[in-house]
């Protein structure tokens, strides 16, 4: 069965498609969040090393995963938009950035709060925390660059360049921060200190990750719709849209 994917690369038909998909992803996210949190708080047993504090993991690890994954997705979409001049993929990249930045912030916040009872300080210059902080800077740079440019096409392309440069740099930054960290304090502080993770914990974490993923897709789709409306406000299909035409 051949689906004409190119049909959905036009903003007008994507708007409609997104409208159909948003409820599905929202419902999936809600259910999965509920299940994940239930497992995290009522099923998963107490960790013998960290006590109840480890329960932060159910939001911390998914947020950290999403922050990195979304940056790569943002760079991929922005790169496709730059290479093939497809407007929709650039809009997707722009829509991903705020959600990615939010997850980065959450990963930092929960990481710091987890660090206080475990390591005794809110912040350690651990390789992961430091790279996460730099990732937040990269997101902020991308968003402020796009915000500063009035012409949307230039904003798309300039954002794509900085996102791609960032994605090339992320492994270098991570590697250098890690090296710097071991040079300075040794590998005394490591997040992965508990290799044996109970199966229920792992299940809870995975469900929470998928929930975050579904949530991110739903929010990004809504934001893409908004961007499409903003950019195409003068076209005829927008004026014929349900909710616009009365």
């Amino acid at each position: 069965m051949a689906i004409n994917w190119f049909k959905y690369s036009s903003p007008a038909s994507f708007y409609v498609l997104a409208g159909k998909m948003i409820p599905l992803f929202s419902i999936a996210a809600t259910i999965l969040f509920a299940v994940g949190l239930y497992i995290g708080f009522f099923v998963a047993p107490t960790d013998f090393q960290q006590g109840e504090a480890y329960r932060i993991i159910f939001i911390h690890v998914p947020a950290a995963w999403m922050s990195m994954f979304l940056y790569v997705m943002m760079a991929v979409w922005a790169g496709i938009g730059l290479a093939f001049n497809t407007r929709l993929s650039s809009m997707m990249a722009t829509a991903i950035a705020p959600t990615g930045a939010m997850f980065t912030f959450l990963a930092l916040w929960t990481g710091a709060i987890w660090g206080k009872p475990m390591w005794g300080t809110w912040w350690v210059w651990d390789a992961r925390l430091t790279s996460e902080l730099i990732l937040l800077f990269l997101y902020i740079g991308f968003m402020s660059l796009q915000a500063a440019i009035d012409d949307p096409r230039r904003a798309d392309k300039a954002g794509a360049v900085i996102a791609l440069v960032g994605v090339v740099n992320i492994p270098i930054i991570y590697f250098s921060v890690k090296w710097w960290n071991t040079l300075h304090q040794g590998a005394t502080v490591s997040v992965t200190s508990s290799p044996k993770m109970a199966a229920t914990m792992l299940t809870g974490m995975l469900i929470m990750s998928i929930a975050c993923w579904m949530y991110a897709i739903a929010v990004i789709l809504i934001r893409t719709q908004t961007i499409i409306l903003e950019r195409e406000r003068h076209t005829s299909w927008v004026s014929e849209l349900k909710g616009v035409s009365s």
């Binding site: 740079g141 960032g166 740099n169």
Partner: peptide, 8 residues
């Protein structure tokens, strides 16, 4: 904002 993170 753009350049300093890349200088790290």
């Amino acid at each position: 904002l753009l350049v300093l993170p890349l200088y790290i």
